[in-house]
Design a protein around this nucleic acid. Structure first.
Lengths: 157, 157
DNA sequence: TCGGGGTGGTTGACGTGTCAATTCGGAGCG
DNA sequence: CGCTCCGAATTGACACGTCAACCACCCCGA
């Protein structure tokens, strides 16, 4: 049969599933972001950065390590850190043991803002996502995610 | 039991599934966007606009209708149309039958660029998404998407 | 006739993301 | 010593999104 050829186009139904998948994920992402923003004045990006830093010893991490940890490009991180520094959420200090290299560290306000944000944010995740699905469905999502990540050559998890 | 209380936080596993879900969808979205961009010099947004217009009779649609069709805010569409107009992909003309109201219409280059983009783009969707999943998995995704959309109060599909 | 609303669309400001170019200070090597 | 190459980080230009303010014109009711 020619129906399963390599470079064929997706069927109408495959396209339909795809559209639903991306659009729904996008809505979730943006709603959660909006809610986080309104409840805590942090963006999703801020949250990611603060989470990583708050889990690092001393609330401090090398900029490059941070970039890898949260999976961002260096330039993206640099821009974002600039904005966060202006808001006094983090500070950048050149680090001694490596001539290049910047240590990013939580400020007091950064730590406190993050601390105050975590419960509302987790609650939102539960309400918007986890509460919608049964345990079996969550297992399905996990399995599907793993399959897709494998297909895309991403690290599992 | 207190384990299913209303405002509880998500479990570690729920959070894990959530992270996998959004991050994977985001990777897919951005990879597909990058590929579209590099193969056709169109962004995902451009594609959405051109798709809607190319399906409209005469390659023309009222700006407000277009916004609703692709689910964008008016201001977002306005900004985007501005950029697309500069690149001669579309044109905006005040429409006669309604005093306010702008007709957005495909230019020749817009139509041709879109035409040339569709096969590569569909192929990419197939390769990156559809090819990764079995038919049963696609059904699961559709079902999960529907569940989430219901939960979020979105129109089905 | 005037004064609100409502609708359709634009604008400006600003945060966010990406890409390409740049800076800075070592290594390594002739 | 002078050269090039490399890795860490920054910068600038630009596309993209959102929010709030705005403009224009209509309609409707006092």
């Amino acid at each position: 049969m020619g129906s399963s050829r390599r470079r064929a186009l997706p069927t109408r139904e495959q396209l339909h599933v795809w559209r639903g998948y991306v659009e729904t994920a996008e809505v979730l992402r943006s709603r959660l972001g909006a809610r986080l923003q309104s409840e805590t004045s942090l963006s999703a990006g801020d949250y990611q950065v603060l989470l990583a830093l708050s889990e690092a010893s001393g609330g401090t991490m090398r900029s490059s390590t941070l970039a890898v940890t949260i999976g961002w490009e260096r330039s993206r991180l640099s821009h974002h850190l600039g904005r966060m520094e202006k808001r006094d959420l983090i500070r950048r200090v050149p680090c001694d043991d490596d001539v290049h290299g910047i240590d990013v560290t939580l400020t007091a306000t950064g730590a406190e803002t993050f601390r105050a944000a975590t419960v509302p944010h987790l609650r939102a995740v539960r309400e918007m996502f986890a509460d919608a699905l049964t345990d079996e469905q969550l297992d399905q999502v996990e399995e599907l995610t793993a399959t897709l990540r494998r297909h895309l050559g991403l690290d599992p998890l």
